[in-house]
Nucleic acid binder design. Structure first.
Lengths: 133, 133, 133, 133
DNA sequence: GTGGTCTAGACCACC
DNA sequence: GTGGTCTAGACCACC
């Protein structure tokens, strides 16, 4: 298991890990029940300190993405059936991201149609990386 | 001139200013050529440290959103007719934002259609706030 | 004999067992003298490591909830007629739990009356599960 | 500002800090807007590492008890007007604490009335420590 | 000055 | 083996 990590980036390393793992889960690369590498194992693979990886795992657990089973390891959580917790806050966050995207699109001289096309294209590419289930 | 700034937010104040000004420009609220208030003036209006405002202006200049004319003041830059500078970098950034958006949508159990509808709705609301550009 | 145990919970499994057995005894589901299953038997019923069950039994014995009779098995201890041993320590613990409860109630915007009503309601529901002791 | 901390306790130091600060806020000892000591200052007062204090502050911020103002310091948040976030989860936690309390009361041979009296007494003592507002 | 991040390394509880 | 906690100490961004 591998995640690209850039120590010089402005976004903290542990956050990069959180984002990367959430993305892998969303894409289906890490299906429900997958055992993640242990904190120390992943740390040594990525040449990071174990505390950094632990911090990422803890945040992922708080977000409900993974579950820790005592003394056994860490596993990907099953998808939520209905509305996830913090639905309103998450939706607000998504709308915020959209607004920022519209601002960026403006500075790229992209009209609404061009932006939508680009999004659809990105969705399709996304699906290629997806594993069944 | 006024921009909503929240000192309690996790995003840095200078970044909130950058985002707010870029948004106002994109929406046409601040059309080409508009003279921005001086660093110290805006700082006192928003009760911020002038270093914070200066940092925001510097970043906006770097991004080509505003121009400083020595001894005259700071002005909103005209839109680029064709491809803007740093086109590739900006496009990559936009695609990155899209991917993050797709991840968020997954955890909200939003399908592709629902996400697209939400984006179209956000676009339309956006246009309401727009002044002819 | 069965106790609900959740390996995903943050509270250790052996602690969940201790709590569950104490609760069953308090409710009268396990009356005085009941023979508990052997460590290995309970471990296999609940698919737990036998060390985990042994740890729970040891703590329960220390708390005076159960008694091990060498070569015969493990039995629920009879209730003490008057003041139980460690009275002061246990009372201090109870008062500590109350204080924590008051803190929680504060953050739930629950007034004193609302909290008392909730406690009385919980007591009544509790009694339903009770077998005459 | 001072909080009792026991490094040998089973509950982690950072959690003891969280509990202690939440209690002080609930009691009104730390009213809305109070500036907390800086992470490093509190760490040196309690002879703890700054990381430990920082971890406590971060959790308190997540729970909405305190707010960080960038570069300025940490302040006690105003009370929520209506239902707090995570209302259901918090209420479930409170009910869990009550059940555990009932179990403990049983082993102290405390009847329902005795337990209620003790709770009322604890509430009243609690109020003494309370500062107006 | 203020909080946040990260490494190195030790120690501990749980299973 | 597994995650969690803690200290010591360095470095950084923000205001």
């Amino acid at each position: 298991m591998w995640f690209p990590v850039n120590p010089r980036s402005a976004t903290p390393i542990y956050q990069q890990l959180v984002d990367g793992i959430k993305e892998s889960v969303a894409k289906g690369v890490l299906p429900y029940g997958t055992k993640l590498p242990s904190v120390r194992e992943l740390a040594s693979t990525l040449t990071l300190n174990h505390n950094t990886v632990a911090k990422a795992y803890q945040q992922l657990e708080r977000e409900g993405v993974i579950e820790v089973i005592q003394g056994r390891g860490t596993y990907v959580t099953a998808a939520f059936p209905g509305e996830p917790p913090d639905y309103r806050a998450r939706l607000a966050k998504l709308e915020d991201m959209m607004k920022q995207m519209l601002v960026e699109a403006h500075y790229l001289n992209l009209g609404d149609d061009a932006l939508l096309s680009l999004l659809v294209a990105t969705m399709n590419e996304w699906k290629k990386g997806r594993t069944g289930s």
